[in-house]
């Protein structure tokens, strides 16, 4: 946070990019309050948890060696299985809102602050269209409150980066 303040003092920052999703909420502790105070936008990467929150990945999913997820602890079968509880929660909410899991995950990110712009990636047109549909999904304050309560009861298993990467990444 100190780094952001020091940089901002020299040259006003427009935006900070960092990971943020229903399965990586660490930015809520210090980053988001700092950005709000300084008037800096936030661009979350991996808002779909590198695909996990879409519900399309399970413990039998295998990743090619050229796929980064093959070395990410969070995508080890035992962690995928342990984190399935989050996928199930999102699926239940999606069914109730007549939306898809990906749309709920993105709508949740969008609903946190008006100056947040997530950047999901995809190689498929159907997923692109699905992701954009999230803009039309409104989560009411009650729904958000219930959702956040449920999220607070879920402990995510597995680190988001292998150790050799993690020590280079600031929070």
């Amino acid at each position: 946070m100190e780094t952001i303040r020091r940089a901002h003092a020299v040259q006003h920052l427009t935006a900070i990019q960092s990971e943020y999703s229903m399965m990586w909420r660490s930015p809520e502790e210090q980053l988001l309050p700092t950005l709000e105070e300084l008037g800096i936008g936030f661009v979350p990467f991996s808002p779909l948890g590198k695909g996990f929150l879409t519900g399309k990945i399970d413990k039998n999913t295998t990743f090619d060696s050229s796929d980064f997820r093959s070395i990410v602890p969070r995508f080890k079968p035992e962690n995928i299985e342990a984190n399935q509880v989050l996928v199930d929660l999102i699926k239940r909410i999606a069914a109730g809102k007549k939306a898809t899991s990906a749309q709920i995950a993105l709508a949740w990110v969008l609903s946190q602050k008006s100056w947040i712009v997530p950047i999901p990636g995809t190689r498929k047109l159907e997923r692109l269209v699905e992701n954009l549909g999230a803009v039309e999904v409104e989560l009411t304050p009650e729904e958000l409150h219930d959702l956040n309560y449920a999220l607070s009861k879920i402990e995510i298993s597995g680190e988001r980066y292998p150790a050799e990467y993690a020590n280079r990444v600031g929070k």
């Binding site: 990467f45 712009v117 997530p118 999230a134």
Partner: peptide
């Protein structure tokens, strides 16, 4: 559309992360 902080930079509410391509 959304504005990124106080910068005046306006973008679509969802962007496109191109890395994975």
């Amino acid at each position: 559309t959304r504005q990124l902080g106080k910068s005046g930079l306006k973008v679509s509410a969802i962007g496109f992360g191109c890395m994975g391509m």
